[in-house]
Write a protein that binds this DNA or RNA. Structure first.
Length: 325
RNA sequence: GGGCGGGUGCCGGAGUAGUCAAACGGAUCAGACUGUAAAUCUGACGCCUUCGGGCUCCGUAGGUGCAAAUCCUACCCCGCCCA
């Protein structure tokens, strides 16, 4: 399965939330004639602006069709869905491929910026995602079974169909158990054997921003405060009026933390503290995810010197080499 | 000065003689993850360990008792009330 010919080069910028990915990507895009694709499961949704830290906040931008031109750099995969819809990895992967092809055809460099590790990997590592769209009815049915017969019985059933699942799905992780069953039932094949990787279609350079934990958490806390000042609460109020809390867009950090507050069940500062905490937890999960990817070139941020310029310079150098090679 | 309540692991907070290294929650750390992924889920969390176990521990110091975080005595802190 070798891809013939020259592979297109793409640059990927990853890192935990609030690490400064967005700005670094913008910088690189300007230097290298790039265009940006957001590998982010939340900025895809319209109206969720402040809480998802959309890249255009606080910047000059305009819209052209579905593309956001921020600081003169096109950004894709932003605001393409209503919060009542559900965007999935598969959707991301498909459209990202299309966008990349388009960018490359215009002799520009695609730059993927992403906090959503799964999305990034699906694209870069060529995940072959089982072609089984979520089946609501089936899921409901399985959930009912789970309730009636219990977790261990459902899990045992799953293991009978596909023993290897034991290695990577915990019996308590109902969501994953149900998805595995869904895939197996619909395809008649083993879930564990369907999770495959293709050879990547791209030659990719992955840069990761790494900040000392303490520094990162400080930045997270500060960013939350800033979001509040920018009017996050009003934003959430407005959206909550129109969309149900059960939509997956509303399950995101920055929104669900205000559910109880808006219902008058919780104090505001408590909600804000939860938001900070959940964001920290999220950052940690992202770090865990990216850590295992040995292809990432980590750019270490010096917490004492607070020297972002030299980090940018280093990133720039690495990219230059990559592109000219 | 008098009265009452209380001092438990990083924090909150159970426990009032044996089954207690001490429930539960939070924080923190580590991890899993292929169509909800900013989702969902797991583990560790006094110290040491050849993972069998060993050691230290519930304000401090003594005491009772086979056995104490739990009972007694003194002392030191903290909160509220009376003066």
């Amino acid at each position: 399965m070798k891809t013939l010919g020259k592979l297109s080069k793409i640059i990927i910028v990853v890192g935990p939330t609030a690490s400064g990915k967005t700005d670094l990507a913008l910088y690189l895009a300007k230097k290298f004639n790039g265009e940006i694709i957001c590998a982010d499961s939340r900025t895809v949704y319209k109206y969720l602006n402040i809480g998802t830290a959309k890249p255009y906040i606080g910047k000059k931008y305009y819209r052209k069709n579905n593309i956001y031109i921020i600081d003169d750099i096109p950004h894709y995969f932003i605001n393409i869905a209503e919060p009542s819809h559900r965007i999935t990895v598969a959707h991301f992967k498909k459209t990202a491929h299309r966008i990349i092809n388009d960018i490359v055809a215009r002799h520009k460099i695609p730059i993927i910026v992403g906090g959503t590790g799964l999305y990034v990997d699906a694209l870069v590592q060529g995940y072959e995602i089982p072609r089984v769209a979520p089946d609501r009815k089936l899921r409901l049915k399985l959930e009912k079974q789970l309730k009636r017969y219990g977790e261990s019985r459902l899990y045992q059933g799953l293991l009978e169909l596909d023993p290897d699942v034991k290695k990577f799905i915990d019996p308590k992780n109902h969501r994953r158990v149900i998805r595995a069953l869904e895939v197996i039932i619909k395809t008649g094949e083993k879930f564990s054997e369907l999770r495959k990787k293709n050879n990547s279609k791209y030659k990719s350079l992955i840069l990761g921003i790494n900040l000392p934990r303490e520094e990162l958490y400080n930045r997270v806390n500060k960013r939350v405060e800033k979001m509040i000042k920018l009017g996050l609460i009003n934003e959430v109020k407005k959206i909550a009026k129109k969309y149900s809390w059960s939509h997956s867009a509303m399950s995101g950090i920055g929104y669900r933390q205000f559910k109880d507050y808006l219902k008058g069940k919780e104090a505001l500062d408590q909600a804000i503290n939860s938001l900070k905490r959940d964001t920290r937890h999220y950052a940690k999960r992202q770090i865990t995810w990216f850590k295992r990817n040995k292809d990432i070139i980590w750019l270490n941020f010096d917490g004492e010197k607070k020297d972002f310029p030299s980090l940018y310079k280093k990133a720039e150098e690495i990219c230059k080499k990559f592109i000219n090679n």
